[in-house]
Write a protein that binds this DNA or RNA. Sequence first.
DNA 1: CATGATTTTTAGATGCGCCTAAAAATGGTG
DNA 2: CACCATTTTTAGGCGCATCTAAAAATCATG
Lengths: 213, 213
Amino acid sequence: MSKSTQREDHLKALYALGESQSSSWVSTTQMASHLGVKPPSVTAMVQVLAELGWAEHRPYHGARLTPTGRKLALSLVRKHRLWETFLVDRLGFGWEEVHDIAEQLEHVDSVALVERLDAYLGHPQTDPHGDPIPKADGTFHPEGEVLVLAELDPLVCCEVKAVREGSDATLSAMSAKGIALGSVLTPAQIEALPAAWLDQLMVCKTVDDGSID
Amino acid sequence: MSKSTQREDHLKALYALGESQSSSWVSTTQMASHLGVKPPSVTAMVQVLAELGWAEHRPYHGARLTPTGRKLALSLVRKHRLWETFLVDRLGFGWEEVHDIAEQLEHVDSVALVERLDAYLGHPQTDPHGDPIPKADGTFHPEGEVLVLAELDPLVCCEVKAVREGSDATLSAMSAKGIALGSVLTPAQIEALPAAWLDQLMVCKTVDDGSID
DNA sequence: CATGATTTTTAGATGCGCCTAAAAATGGTG
DNA sequence: CACCATTTTTAGGCGCATCTAAAAATCATG
């Protein structure tokens, strides 16, 4: 598929891991466990990405995307999230079923396809997990004030805005408990959730309108 | 992508070439030119397909699909044609633009995806080129009485039912001359067509209803 | 600040799909 | 029916992405 599914996968891993931590430098071991390969394989691939001008490699310290590499990674994220949106909104898949399929679809190489798909879906701003969809030029729509549920200090009512990387099983379990994008959670409900979910659920506080009047 | 895009491509070539001629035995040279590789590469791949039980290989004589191989090939054809239908009917591509994209999409491995796509498209029976779409069980809807335009002996009015493997440029040119599925051609129009097209256009005779009344 | 534990890279091998060149089989023709 | 042209397969290599094992660099700790 096009230039190489593997290169694209390494590029995406570099992007995803760089975003999820303070420094954009990512270790080869991190990438290896994320991609399910061994560290030496990552080293080799990172060196290829460096030759292509898509990443920098500081031996023994890690790798980081170049601006070019970042653009490419964003276009992959864009494709992935547009396909997920298609699978859920149009084909009726559950949000826990679409990741692996989108993983394959995102490697299809056709600019026209992505742009037509985007238009067909009505230029969606977020995917079925609530994550923002990068635009064709690599910019995002602002994400609003969301925070990880684990960091909600005084437990207050909040609305689920997005779910970060969860296994299919986790996503199914959430669905089963009635958690979806837009769900409102009360402090009591939050305390009853499995601890692991607190790091995955992104929420924003809702105003308690004292609805018992 | 799944088991191997290359194996799938060889399987499809074996199917397509076997169908297009009297004998289902296909030479490695034929496959090689169809796939754009050299004959020794095909020999090697055919031997792999034989080990998988997808094809028989009679050395120095050719290869042929087994029933299992044929089923797999039909499921690829099914996916290809469903995606082409999606691209044209839903995304608004022209029929000459979709082959290469569908070629990539058909290798995406997900039974659920194909079946949902089929339902979403309304279980179409033919693709945008007029070719029948195999059903999930590998059967076809009957194709009706179509014949190659080149064999239309007394030139009479006919309706375009399908277009066989044409280059994108050919398909564009046909569109430009107003030829689409369902177009009705008069003997005068047929005589004006480029000779090469006569082998690609599949038509059925139409009743001249003597509409000048 | 030196030494041991850990991380990372290099070295060398494997499988896959492709290639070219050479050998083997087939098939047509005198 | 033997020979030559053609087709097909075998032999041997190459590039890519991966692996394991060994070497090198970094880091953490006494």
